[in-house]
Design a binder for these strands. Structure first.
Lengths: 241, 241
DNA sequence: TACAATTTGTGCGTATGTATA
DNA sequence: ATATACATACGCACAAATTGT
């Protein structure tokens, strides 16, 4: 492993990090499996264990892998924990974390709209799978969600087993081999319409939180575009700066 | 520097980290000043440079200090950059970061309400300074902000020079020696009232984003409670997960 | 229960590279 | 050029956690 992959200087441990990341992305070590030990990898790349440690620490920092003292290093999965703490930011007014229960309303395959194609970086005319569901928090309907994914990337999602799991990212990873690594959210305040009245039991025109999320994989490929509308009488969006 | 401060074992570099943090908090190195070099500090504590490096790296990760190769390590300040990128999460619809311009409406010292006393952990009957201002983004009034701080902790803030800087946290640090280290935000959707109509030019009842922020210092002491109401026709709240 | 093997975590020391003044 | 400071890289020793014998 030489120091000059490109003419510009890059630290060795960063090159190792990228090499390891490439192997994760390539599927050599599927999510949930243990990767080789530090000493074994250090020997493979011909670097010191300290250098390899720094690469693994950086990957752990990015939540690509998780390290367990005495056991080894595993590729990160979408356990309920991760989906809940990293990607679900709604909490009760008292600060309690409540786990959502999903109920699917519609599920269909159709052509992507112009906006969806742009968000998901799809070719002209590609299909998407569109899922609409409501999510209950504390036995009370709180969210109306519309989400779309590429129908080619997630082939057959519209025919998946009836009760979709309420942690969809786990399904993406298990069934389709696509892991959501991070996401961007843009939040707006909007007025409720008749649909929200019907499903969430709020007045037409009452204020709702609208959360537009683009979920991406390790290579920044957009996997899912999701719009959630949330009633904030009983819950709120929480963020730490 | 022994390994046993408490009966429970704690890594040496964490103990060093806390010792250094304590000296920052005590004001030994004010924000913006350079702290001693790695080798000097390592000698002071009788540890290796590697161990001290790990402590400093952790502090840099927490944004307590900033490291410059070839120059040294400085205690973090509230430059416009930090206030803007860490604490200001509103962006234009096109993704542009727009810097806000503030105009103060009212500024008064008064008794704390029950809610404010709870949020700021004040004694019964303590005073607060209350500032109300609007903030413009792209020459368009976009936010109506109400913020309160302890009148004893920020003594004389209500008599500060007329044009308050639009980055208040910088003033807190410079004038009162209180540095905002992190914050919690809770976001709601609310309906605009007559005041919002007057100041933001929106219809009564139209949806607004309400951001309730508690800003804390390095020791988790709440410094400021702030409620911002934001119109999201031209801007939105941005968050990365 | 005790012990050993494996793996990551911590700590030390040293040498060299890069950036800044 | 020189000096200083942080960044990278190597190697070693030992501690702590886990697992199997």
């Amino acid at each position: 492993m030489n120091q000059q992959i490109t003419p510009t200087y890059r630290p060795l441990y960063q090159q190792i990090k990228e090499a390891l990341l490439a192997r994760v992305v390539a599927g050599e070590w599927p999510p949930g499996t243990f990767i080789p030990s530090e000493s074994a990898l250090a020997e493979q790349y011909g670097v010191s264990v300290g250098t390899l440690r720094k690469a693994l620490d950086a990957l752990a920092n990015d939540k690509v892998v998780i390290r367990y003292q005495g056991k080894g290093t595993v590729v990160a999965t979408h356990d309920s924990d991760r989906s809940l703490f990293q990607f679900f930011r709604l909490i009760g007014l008292d600060g309690s974390r409540c786990l959502p229960i999903s109920r699917v309303l519609t599920r269909e395959r159709r052509a992507a709209t112009h906006e969806e194609a742009g968000m998901l970086e799809l070719q002209k005319g590609e299909d998407v799978v569109h899922i609409r569901r409501i999510r209950e928090l504390d036995d009370h309907p709180a969210l109306l969600e519309d989400l779309v994914v590429s129908a080619t990337r997630f082939a057959g999602l519209e025919r998946e087993p009836a009760p979709l799991p309420n942690t969809l990212y786990h399904l993406y990873q298990q069934r389709f081999g696509h892991s959501v690594a991070h996401a961007e959210e843009r939040i707006f305040a909007v007025a409720a319409d008749a649909e929200h009245q019907a499903h969430l039991g709020v007045e037409i025109g009452s204020p709702l939180l609208e959360i537009r999320r683009i979920a991406k994989d390790l290579q920044d490929t957009p996997l899912e575009y999701r719009i959630s509308r949330c009633e904030t009488q009983h819950h709120c969006y929480f963020n730490e700066l």
